[in-house]
């Protein structure tokens, strides 16, 4: 509880003593928004950690080896991720559902195990230490989050967004309305790669260290990012950000759980998917699905978007 009491009673002190946590929330929010984009266009892609790795390593390596300005480094990293996104997307976006998920897991693991942990320039298992410009720290991260959320939100409102919605709901019907399904899926996939890469670059600069671990660029991270989106709800842009916020703060929310926090987290996740399939932020107000054994008449809830 102390955590939340301090947040309310002494916001400035809170800000100063929890810089790292706030930054991490911001970065997770950006990645979550990248996940939102692919889910919003009906693609179960788990490639985000791979693009984060591209963002992190490219920007830091440029910095270490060429001493180029940080803005340029980040820009190159983001563009590179877009190109890789195109090359990966061309063959895999034909796949649907879990097949796409598995293919993207193949991509991130091949990148993680085959390149990051295997090529000397990346520092292999040791990662990369760097003294790089921290990019302005928390303010930049939070501004980035707001900007990314804003841009994605606006994109979902226009012609592009309505095409994505149509594809998510029913690809076959979308085709009948003249929507070039493959092209719009690709646009979402690449945009999501750009955002993830940017988040990766931010993270690398935040920590002065590029950690090559599985929890950073491997399946563990992919699952975590998926959790943000599903828990928060992927029907609205803000959903995954809320999911990221909650997951990152779980240890503080369930302070009493102590070491058992992951058990609580797992149960929480199961409970949400069963009782609140549309996620925490979603249609239907606060309605929950009543399971069959519930002793009252059943109400149906909308399916997740």
């Amino acid at each position: 509880m102390d955590f939340f009491i301090q947040l309310l009673s002494d916001p400035i002190g809170f800000w100063n003593s929890h810089t790292l946590l706030i930054s991490q929330i911001g970065i997770n929010g950006v990645v979550a928004t990248s996940m939102f984009l692919v889910l919003y266009s009906g693609q179960l892609s788990l490639a985000a950690p791979g693009f984060m790795a591209i963002g992190a390593y490219t920007s830091v390596l440029m910095e270490l080896h060429w001493h180029t300005p940080v803005v340029l480094n980040v820009a190159v990293a983001v563009i590179l991720a877009g190109i890789v996104g195109l090359l990966v997307g061309l063959p895999v976006l034909r796949l649907r559902g879990v097949f796409l998920a598995i293919a993207t897991i193949g991509f991130i693991e091949a990148l993680h195990l085959g390149v990051i942990l295997n090529v000397p320039i990346t520092g292999e298992g040791l990662g990369l230490q760097h003294e790089a410009d921290p990019l302005g720290g928390v303010p930049i991260i939070l501004v980035s989050l707001v900007a990314v959320v804003f841009v994605v939100w606006r994109l979902t409102k226009g012609r592009l967004g309505s095409a994505w919605s149509a594809i998510r709901q029913d690809e076959i019907a979308a085709l009948s309305q003249g929507i070039h399904v493959a092209r719009y899926k690709m646009i979402a996939f690449i945009a999501s790669a750009l955002i993830a890469s940017y988040a990766g670059a931010l993270e690398a600069h935040l920590n002065f260290f590029v950690d090559p671990g599985d929890s950073q660029y491997g399946v563990t991270r992919a699952v975590q990012v998926l959790t943000f989106a599903v828990l928060g709800g992927s029907g609205f842009v803000i959903g995954p950000v809320v999911g990221a916020l909650i997951v990152t703060l779980l240890p503080y929310i369930f302070e009493g759980a102590g070491d058992y926090i992951n058990i609580i987290a797992g149960i929480f996740l199961i409970a949400v998917i069963i009782f609140r399939p549309q996620g925490i932020v979603g249609r239907g107000g606060l309605a929950i699905v009543r399971p069959a054994w519930w002793p009252r008449s059943r109400v149906s809830a909308p399916s997740p978007g």
Partner: peptide, 17 residues
């Protein structure tokens, strides 16, 4: 094959793509 979770209006707007 409607876009079931979208509103009627959104369905028609998608038709104008």
């Amino acid at each position: 094959r409607l876009f079931k979770d979208l509103t009627a209006l959104e369905n028609v707007l998608i038709g104008m793509h």
